[in-house]
């Protein structure tokens, strides 16, 4: 049995040229710009933890403590110094743990295998004492 393969004539293709360098630099600038946008956001008042698109809990960032939830087995969320981080997780990667602590709206910690997403919500309406659900 013979397999037919097609070869490309790539002799003319260069490693890099001026036009492409410009394109890449532009892309870098755009990406860096997007990177700095969250940093301008306010420090949030509370962290929202979601399982899928359902909010599981809202945790105030003012009080230090550890939290666990039945939806996320093996995960521990820790609040300290006005920021929240994942200190323990049952996932294989531990990407969520390596994200570090977040405290501003726009910042996120995500654990895909556990379907957990932590976001920060700012205090626009936290002059409310309670919310009835």
């Amino acid at each position: 049995m013979k397999t037919v393969v097609t070869a490309m004539e790539n002799k003319e293709r260069k490693v890099i040229n001026k036009r492409d360098t410009i394109i890449i630099v532009l892309i870098i600038i755009i990406a860096l710009a997007c990177l700095f946008i969250p940093k301008l956001a306010d420090r949030g008042g509370c962290a929202v933890i979601k399982c899928g698109d359902e909010a599981v809990a809202e945790i105030s960032l003012d009080k230090d403590g550890d939290y666990t939830f039945p939806e996320f087995e093996g995960m521990i969320f820790t609040v300290a110094d006005g920021a929240i981080s994942v200190t323990e997780s049952s996932c294989g990667d531990h990407t969520c743990m390596r994200t570090g602590a977040i405290s501003r709206s726009g910042e996120v910690i995500v654990c895909v295998p556990n379907k957990a997403a932590v976001t920060i919500e700012s205090k626009e309406q936290s002059d409310l004492d309670v919310v009835l659900k």
């Binding site: 013979k2 397999t3 037919v4 393969v5 097609t6 070869a7 490309m8 004539e9 790539n10």
Partner: peptide, 10 residues
């Protein structure tokens, strides 16, 4: 870019 088919054994 040119394409040059070639045969290679399985």
């Amino acid at each position: 870019i040119g394409l040059k088919p070639e045969k290679v054994s399985a």
